[in-house]
Amino acid sequence: MAEPLVVFFYGLVTSLIFALYSVGFSLVFGVARVIDAAYGIWYTTAAYLVYALVTRLLLPLPVTVVVVVASMVALGISYYAVLVRGLQEKVEMIMTTFLVALMAQYLIVAIFTNFPWSIPALFPGSTQVLGVSLFNQQVAAAITAFLLLLVLWYLVYRTKMGLAIRAVAQDKEAALLMGINPDRVMAFTLALSCSLAGIAALLQAPNSVISPTMGWPMLTLAFAVVVLGGMGDFFGAIIASFIIGFSYQLITNLVNPLYSMAAALAMILLVLWLRPRGLFGRSLE
């Protein structure tokens, strides 16, 4: 039986994809101090954008990729400038971003109905690795996610922009005194998180179906990762994604798929109970 291998490969793929779409959320949370309840909807929006471009406008895939990423960046910046920038307190943030998410979701329902549709794969077919069949699309998604996470790490820890991001995350006032423009940094962070959601949709949605509510589980998951990994903690988020991804696959394969999501989420409650500041108890340094 190839069961340990199955858990290993699928766990790896699942975790890397989880990491890809929670890092953006974690950054927004840590840097802009915004609980972005609309985070899931950006994933959904990007997926429908891909669907519209590929199946309705019949654009070739490479063009689609460029258009999607570019529009997600634009969306992120305007989202920041028009709405997020003026948000002050917690409830206002949640109310506003949540209502934005609802509007976007129902707009999608009005245009595409709530029937699930699917997107053609960028990398169709599957390959066998050590006797385990893996979908090419998933392998590509995992590899891209890994590379993107490396790029992100470089961006956050080795560039000037990254320094600014970390400075703002730590202390907005102090960053301002040091000559950093927090507005620009936050706009950049939101553009980054939106485009990450867009890329995640490009990579992951072809394997699944798209539906107007597909973003909500992503939001819950991203929240869970932040709880587990600590707010705005880059490595914490990645490690948390791996913990959730692997425990999910373990339970799916060895116990019963019906319990996997409940168990993964219950584990988070447990962690919160035992280690209330997250597993690592630090934040973006």
Partner: peptide, 15 residues
Amino acid sequence: LYPTTESDFSSYLAK
């Protein structure tokens, strides 16, 4: 049995 919220069948197919 699979949950109605399932989004990936890789593990089921492998088994």
